[in-house]
């Protein structure tokens, strides 16, 4: 096999030290993306730093009401955590809508944030792909781009959609990312963590070389809010979202006093839609309002040869999710 060095870390500090700043080194958590891509020869780390023994698998309520999640908390553990189910239903639902039980048992919170795109041209190791080989071009533009390609946040360099469900819920909730690196610890706003492809699609996140995600801290839940995740896809399980929505609403009677809306499957990063939120806030709930607000998310969308349907589908994901959630709130 292609040989690589292996180091096992017992602490975040050790992990960071073992990693160094070499870009050819990868942290290994659940491995559900990394091992796949190594086996496909798309990723070729020279060294792997195993962080499975690092004590980062706790979930902790902070005094200010926020919830701090260790980077090694598995997707299953996070989805089943009673505090998450009670205060952040959208996150639990998003996690359970993703992958399969076996994958969720292995996949971690930090790893989910770091997962690579599902674009087949990225994964085939052969086609032109600016993520895999900067400057080579984007085969998805003008190619097969129906399922795992975006209509929001694309550039002429890359149109791959971000595959995560979890991150869509998190960007709706609001969160900060705690990282530790060679220069010490720092915090990144979750909304700034994932980067648009722009001219540099190979750069996918705000981490500096050698930085390790240690925690994600969710904003305190909005008082009295309700939330839900709705994922639309061809088959009913085990498929990445064609379009999905995370919505959080706080109601006063029929009036929406606060709203958070984020989208998955349609954006090149987990996609917060503030223009939708603004259109909802302070308004009396109605299907017509939802439809009008949802349309705003896609005013700047670009439809590619096979994925124009995602523009109406993404709006449907918002409208139905809001309608069901507010309906259930009223009941």
């Amino acid at each position: 096999m292609r040989n690589f060095d292996y180091a096992r870390a017992e602490s975040a500090h050790q992990a960071v030290a073992a990693h160094g700043t070499d870009r050819e080194v990868s942290f290994l958590a659940g491995g559900t993306t990394l091992l796949d891509l190594v086996k496909l020869d798309v990723m070729q780390p020279q060294k792997v730093v195993d962080i499975n023994r690092v004590d980062l698998d706790g979930i902790e309520r902070l005094d200010d009401g926020r919830l701090r999640i260790g980077a090694m908390v598995t997707n299953t553990a996070l989805a089943r955590d009673q505090r998450v189910i009670n205060d952040y239903a959208v996150l639990s639902q998003a996690l359970l809508a993703g992958a399969s039980t076996q994958l969720r048992n292995k996949a971690t919170t930090g790893g989910n944030m770091m997962q690579r795109v599902r674009c087949p041209y990225f994964r085939d190791g052969v086609s032109a792909c600016n993520k895999r080989e900067p400057g080579s071009g984007c085969s998805a533009i003008g190619g097969v781009n129906r399922s795992v390609h975006a209509v929001l946040g694309t550039s002429d360099q890359c149109i791959a959609s971000h595959p995560s469900d979890m991150c869509v819920a998190m960007i709706a909730i609001g969160a900060t990312v705690q990282v530790e690196g060679p220069e010490g610890q720092r915090e990144i706003d979750f909304a700034d963590f994932h980067l648009l492809p722009g001219e540099t699609p190979a750069r996918e996140h705000a981490l500096e070389p050698g930085e390790l995600i240690t925690h994600v801290t969710l904003d305190a839940p909005i008082t009295g809010s309700q939330s839900a995740y709705l994922k639309l896809r061809d088959r009913q399980s085990y498929q990445f979202a064609l379009a999905s929505s995370a919505v959080i609403v706080q109601m006063d009677g029929d009036t929406i006093t606060q709203a958070r809306v984020a989208l998955g499957g349609v954006g090149t990063k987990p996609w917060r839609a503030p223009e939708v939120e603004a259109a909802l806030k302070g308004k009396s709930a109605s299907e017509r309002l939802f439809a009008d607000a949802a349309g705003r998310a896609f005013e700047n969308a670009t439809a590619y040869s096979q994925n124009a349907y995602k523009i109406p589908l993404g709006q449907q994901a918002i409208v139905r999710n809001l309608a069901d959630l507010i309906d259930s709130t009223a009941a």
Partner: peptide, 16 residues
């Protein structure tokens, strides 16, 4: 028979 073939009001593609 995928869902996009059944949807109404799908806009035209703006790009390849």
């Amino acid at each position: 028979i995928t869902l996009d073939k059944l949807m109404e009001d799908v806009p035209a593609a703006q790009s390849a």
